[in-house]
Simulated assay, not measured.
Amino acid sequence: MLVGITFLLIFQLFGEVIAYYLEGLVPGPVIGMALIFGALIASRRTLIGRLMQPTVPTSHTLLANFGVLFVPAGVGIIQHLDLLAERGLALLVTIAISTVATLIVTVWCYLAIKRLIGGASHG
């Protein structure tokens, strides 16, 4: 399973690198998924194809257990529907404000780092 996860992460990394050079036209994980699909299809009879075979059961295992990640959140919401009804507007406002604040801080950090890197490369 470790070999399969390693291959999945390597292809996601390749996808992220390609997405960087495409300037965000297509998300990196989508590109990585297309690359690994193409590699698995094209290399069935080659050495790379045999090396990549652990990705198939690893992917099946990950997909089979993916729903477990969403169960706790769903159960928590159902158990506390009365709180959601009572404080739903406050929660919505809090989530909206925190999302906007996160975006603002992210952009500020990006611009600050870009200024630092841009200043270092020109100096």
Rank of each mutant, 00 (worst) to 15 (best):
V93G: 08
A85I: 06
W108M: 11
L81F: 12
V93S: 05
I113M: 12
Q79G: 02
I117V: 15
Q79P: 06
S98A: 12
C109V: 14
L81G: 01
I97T: 13
I104F: 02
R115V: 08
H80I: 02
I117N: 09
G118Q: 03
I77Q: 05
F70I: 12
A112W: 10
G74N: 11
E86L: 08
H80D: 12
L83R: 01
V75W: 01
V100R: 01
A85L: 13
V100L: 15
L111F: 07
L83D: 14
H122Q: 12
V71C: 01
L103K: 13
T102I: 12
C109Q: 12
V105S: 10
K114Q: 12
T94E: 10
G119D: 13
A101G: 00
L89C: 05
W108D: 03
S121R: 11
V100S: 06
G74C: 06
G88P: 00
T94S: 15
V105A: 14
G74Y: 04
P72E: 03
L111K: 14
S121N: 10
A112P: 03
V105N: 06
G88H: 07
T102F: 11
K114C: 08
G119I: 02
L92R: 08
A112H: 09
I117Y: 05
V107C: 09
L84D: 07
H122A: 11
A101N: 07
V107K: 15
V105Y: 04
D82K: 09
S98G: 09
A120H: 06
A85G: 15
A90H: 02
A73K: 05
T99M: 11
I95D: 09
A101W: 00
R87S: 12
